[in-house]
Amino acid sequence: MTQVKFKIWRGDKESGEFKEYQTEVTEGMVVLDAIHQIQAESANDLACRWNCKAGKCGSCSAEINGMPKLMCMTRLSDMNLEDPISVEPMRAFPIMKDLVSDVSWNYRVKEKIKPFKPRKPDNADGSWNMQQKDVERVQEFRKCIECFLCQDVCHVLRDHEKHEEFIGPRFFVYSAALEMHPLDTEDRVPDLKKSQGIGYCNITKCCTKVCPEHITITDNAIIPLKERVVDEFYDPLTKLFRIFKPKRGDD
């Protein structure tokens, strides 16, 4: 058993500061365990959001030693316990209290993305025929647990606060899941370029690095969408060749 120092951000949207706490750490503990222990021992009013403690609900997102991570999936045994461990709320969103930030902006963004619009059903009972090969690519995107760590680490939102012009990696993944779906007939590419600001992404791959579900966000979602934008807006040759391409939903 070891006594470990934690520097936890305490405050609200107006002001705040790091406060130091000490607690006993035992084998197998994760950061969320330590936060709960500190809550019980010395900071009963410490606010933190959590739910499943299994890395599947995406609630306990925070910045641990400056990196966006899920508190429930960050093992203390993997960290240097000699130095104090800093825990703070996600910085890309307004802070509500202590470790809780207000992520409601994300839900408003999601509402603006054109929803799934399937082609006419293949069968009389209203069902469609699909092959596994056709849906494999989008299944990766469905693993997202909406922890918003990718949004938090993205410098376009975090440092440049382009929340009005840029939807962030999470919603590029969401758009990719819809856009690449074999049944979908909607065209989201003009929105991606114009109102959703995919051009702001400069491919730092930070979103991919922090994703707890290991979704290859940049390579499999954002860059393919950027290429679709190039097809439609910047590449006259491809546009010419695709004149005879079957319309979406017809194939």
Partner: peptide, 19 residues
């Protein structure tokens, strides 16, 4: 732009690959 993930940037303006 940025120096590394979740490390602050030395400037505030940003155009990205948007323009």
């Amino acid at each position: 732009d940025p120096p590394s993930c979740s490390v602050g940037e030395p400037r505030k303006h940003y155009w990205g690959e948007h323009s």
